[in-house]
Design a protein around this nucleic acid. Structure first.
Lengths: 319, 319
DNA sequence: TTGTACGCGTTATCAA
DNA sequence: TTGATAACGCGTACAA
């Protein structure tokens, strides 16, 4: 592999000129710059990341903590990871993945953390390197997330437009900001339309919502749309309704949230609030690298607007 | 962060002695070793990975290529990744993830590649660093994988034991070794039991097998078990049969392959060949690091035995 | 604007 | 068995 010195020789300059062409190009004459670039091209020069890291007192490593049990979540994280990886790769950073299976060891330049719950914020606050969270929080950490409230508001507005007379929210039984925001989106839309609100909450398993439908089938009335806080919950609702050959989407509408995987196996496919997970991964990484470069300055939040992906589980009258 | 020199001072020895305690402990007197360890403990010494990488002419980076479209695969890769990450973290390696979204850049010490198809082997062969594949292949690459043949054989044997009179294989329509092996496992079991074989093949989408059942319901006969090459295919079969209120598992049995995620939302849960994905990730990484350490020597293959996870989609008579 | 000297933390080599 | 020295590739400080 070619080094700085090799390029310097080839271009008849000193190492430092080559280094400057890379890091402070404004300090070098255009003529020299050209011949240095030419030499770099000829030798296919790539900076040695380890040497850069050593001299800059950095590691070029980002740690990604996934605090949730991955087996019970949609394949959500793989897309996030792909987004993160794209940015990191471009900037010559690499990744260490920390899960329940392996504990932390060694240094890094910064952290991306996701799946955190209440009790986690304390130790996260004590980390000595820049942190960006993936997931809404109200503890003043920089974060990226879907705009949860807006997403559910869009979903609820759509259900209203489609003329469902009863619109109920199927929430997740967790006391976390993302859930509060999703419920708030539902409440806001319902208030605007002066409709009555009903919120049920379940742990995030499809069989729980399926059971719910089966136990309460007798009391359900047609022309209802269920706005669900996850595709899992939505999937269970659909399955329960299908058991009674309910007329979806005419008598019952279903809207989910996530739009990652589950939908590929649902019949009919579920209308869902589609999160831009890959893009969010990118943004997380960008935010973190910017934070590192700036010496740890707060970067604020990045909330991307999801899209409502319309499918067969809701009426689709042109309005 | 404490360095070698700090530890050396604290222990009243030279840097080299400390370095040797780490890398060639047999060359150091026990007494010195003890005081060096004590100093390392006191100062919470951690080797500087960048410096090690620089002097050893390595990068401490492994690249993971996922050549498949992740959105259409089960959340399979996250478990693989967790396994890989565990081993890499322990050995102070970090990861770069290469997918369809980002192209390769910069150096590394070795590759783990998965999701490859026919045409990929040529460029893989030309890589200049050690490679381990995750996925059976017949091109002489080192690899880790489930023992696909044995897994399906176990599944088929079980179906036979449960007394299903007709046992059909629902395969994936791909010309890849893992599929050949799974079909071979079915064939082998059927031959041993002198039963007639039927193999259908579909692209790996649940709606295709669901459609198949719906179109052919009239011609199906009870007492049949479907051995499927993936949980997706199995999921579609179950869904199709459910449409006709078929009696599962009495009249129809279903066995899938993978056991990752899909099963959490199936009713009844599907009996499946459970792959030890996390463990396989570990092994992949171990194999690759061993290969790197040995200067690139072939490591052979590692085929782990899956377990048959028995659930409600097959009869369960004590035999 | 360009070049020289030095140091980052570690390991291999060779001498003691 | 242990220590001094040089080297890995790069960037900063300073000198020219």
């Amino acid at each position: 592999m070619a080094t700085l010195s090799d390029v310097a020789k080839q271009a008849n300059v000193s190492k430092m000129t080559v280094s400057r062409v890379i890091n402070h190009p404004e300090q070098v004459r255009d003529e020299l710059k050209r011949s240095v670039f030419e030499a770099m091209r000829q030798l296919d020069y790539r900076p040695n990341v380890a040497a850069q890291a050593l001299v800059n007192n950095r590691t070029q490593i980002i740690k990604l903590f996934i605090l949730e049990d991955m087996d019970t979540t949609e394949p959500y994280y793989m897309n996030l990871l792909a987004g993160i990886a794209k940015k990191l790769g471009k900037e010559q950073y690499s990744l260490q993945l920390i899960t329940e299976h392996n504990f932390d060891i060694g240094g890094c330049d910064g952290y991306i953390i996701t799946g955190m719950r209440h009790g986690d914020y304390e130790w996260i606050r004590n980390l000595e390197r820049p942190v960006v969270l993936f997931g809404e929080n109200r503890e003043n950490f920089d974060f990226c997330d879907t705009n949860n409230q807006l997403g559910v508001k869009m979903a609820t507005d759509y259900a209203v437009k489609q003329g469902y007379q009863t619109i109920e929210f199927i929430g997740m039984a967790v006391k976390e900001p993302f859930e509060y925001s999703r419920e708030a989106g539902y409440m806001m839309s319902m208030q605007q339309h002066r409709m009555n609100t009903v919120i049920h909450r379940f742990n995030n398993h499809s069989h729980l919502t399926m059971d719910y439908i089966q136990r309460n089938w007798g009391t359900l009335h047609a022309n209802t749309c269920y706005i669900c806080a996850s595709d899992r919950l939505a999937f269970g609702i659909e399955k329960g309704l299908s058991r009674f050959s309910a007329n979806i989407p005419i008598d019952f509408g279903i809207i989910g949230f996530d739009g990652v995987f589950l939908n590929q196996v649902a019949t009919p496919k579920i209308t869902t609030v589609q999160q831009p997970i890959f893009e969010l991964g990118l943004r997380c990484a960008e935010m973190l690298l910017a934070k590192i470069a700036s010496g740890g300055q707060a970067q604020g939040v990045c909330q991307l607007v999801p899209t409502l992906s319309i499918a067969g589980s809701t009426r689709n009258n042109i309005v």
